[in-house]
């Protein structure tokens, strides 16, 4: 799990152009979106959907279900763990 979390943080930094941020800077439990945390937005959410598709072979059929899954790196990692092929 810890390995997946680190990998995921690296993939987020790469895909979302989070320059000047290292995996250690990202709090695994903190909210990814909105004020506080990383302050990601809707375009970032689409990029995370692509990470799930390309890197883990997981297709989110209904973007509306993304909200709780995309809450934090932890919730995202849990979801990948449960659904990866």
């Amino acid at each position: 799990m810890e390995e997946l979390i680190l990998k995921l943080k690296e993939q987020l930094i790469e895909a979302l152009n989070l320059e000047e941020i290292t995996p250690e800077d990202i709090d695994t439990e903190a909210p990814l979106f909105g004020e506080g945390g990383l302050g990601l937005d809707s375009i970032d959410a689409l990029e995370i959907i692509l990470i799930l598709e390309k890197q883990y072979g997981i297709r989110l059929e209904n973007p509306a279900e993304a909200k709780p899954i995309f809450y934090s790196v932890r919730t995202l990692a849990d979801f990948i763990e449960q659904n990866r092929k």
Partner: peptide, 10 residues
Amino acid sequence: REGASPAVFV
């Protein structure tokens, strides 16, 4: 096959 990147396309 993978398609566009939203963060680039925008």
